[in-house]
Simulated scan of single mutants.
Amino acid sequence: MKHGTIRHMAVFTLKHAPDSAETAAFLRDGAEILSAIPVVKNFEVLRQISLKCDFQYGFSMEFEDQAAYDAYNSHPEHQAFVAKRWEIEVAAFQEIDFVN
């Protein structure tokens, strides 16, 4: 991660059972849709293993700078994913943003 890069992470729990087809589809579709946005770098889908955290999954990605992060947040594909999938299928979440 180069200096000034923003690492955005969203940790979340889905309304679906962990081993369900719906969970697999959400994680797959999230990765496909969000990683295709041009400003997104190093996209990862993560599974939580800590007993100290109630969230089950995470999406992690990097942005070159604040302008790229802002472009992601306003991108039509991101906004559509949030409206059509995230707001419907996510039970709880926390967003974390780091800069080095």
Rank of each mutant, 00 (worst) to 15 (best):
residue 1 M to K: 13
residue 1 M to H: 14
residue 3 H to G: 04
residue 4 G to P: 03
residue 4 G to R: 05
residue 5 T to V: 14
residue 5 T to Q: 09
residue 7 R to F: 07
residue 8 H to W: 15
residue 8 H to K: 13
residue 8 H to F: 15
residue 8 H to S: 09
residue 11 V to W: 01
residue 11 V to D: 00
residue 12 F to G: 01
residue 14 L to A: 06
residue 15 K to W: 00
residue 15 K to Q: 10
residue 15 K to N: 12
residue 16 H to N: 12
residue 17 A to E: 15
residue 17 A to Y: 00
residue 18 P to Q: 10
residue 18 P to S: 10
residue 19 D to Q: 09
residue 19 D to V: 03
residue 20 S to P: 04
residue 21 A to L: 10
residue 22 E to G: 07
residue 23 T to N: 09
residue 23 T to M: 09
residue 24 A to N: 05
residue 24 A to S: 11
residue 27 L to E: 02
residue 27 L to N: 02
residue 27 L to I: 02
residue 29 D to M: 06
residue 29 D to Y: 03
residue 29 D to G: 02
residue 31 A to T: 06
residue 32 E to A: 12
residue 33 I to R: 07
residue 33 I to F: 01
residue 36 A to Q: 07
residue 36 A to Y: 05
residue 38 P to W: 04
residue 39 V to N: 05
residue 39 V to S: 13
residue 40 V to W: 03
residue 40 V to I: 06
residue 42 N to C: 11
residue 44 E to D: 12
residue 44 E to Y: 04
residue 45 V to D: 02
residue 45 V to W: 00
residue 46 L to I: 10
residue 46 L to W: 05
residue 46 L to S: 06
residue 48 Q to R: 10
residue 49 I to V: 13
residue 50 S to H: 08
residue 50 S to Q: 06
residue 54 D to G: 15
residue 54 D to A: 14
residue 54 D to I: 07
residue 55 F to Q: 08
residue 56 Q to N: 13
residue 57 Y to F: 12
residue 58 G to V: 03
residue 58 G to A: 13
residue 58 G to K: 02
residue 59 F to L: 09
residue 60 S to H: 08
residue 60 S to Y: 06
residue 62 E to D: 15
residue 64 E to I: 01
residue 68 A to D: 08
residue 69 Y to H: 11
residue 69 Y to K: 04
residue 70 D to W: 01
residue 71 A to T: 09
residue 71 A to S: 14
residue 75 H to D: 13
residue 77 E to M: 13
residue 77 E to K: 15
residue 80 A to P: 07
residue 80 A to V: 04
residue 80 A to T: 14
residue 81 F to S: 02
residue 81 F to C: 05
residue 83 A to F: 00
residue 83 A to V: 03
residue 83 A to S: 10
residue 86 W to N: 00
residue 86 W to R: 04
residue 87 E to K: 13
residue 88 I to K: 15
residue 88 I to N: 05
residue 90 V to T: 01
residue 90 V to N: 01
residue 90 V to K: 00
residue 90 V to F: 03
residue 93 F to K: 11
residue 94 Q to V: 15
residue 94 Q to K: 14
residue 100 N to R: 13
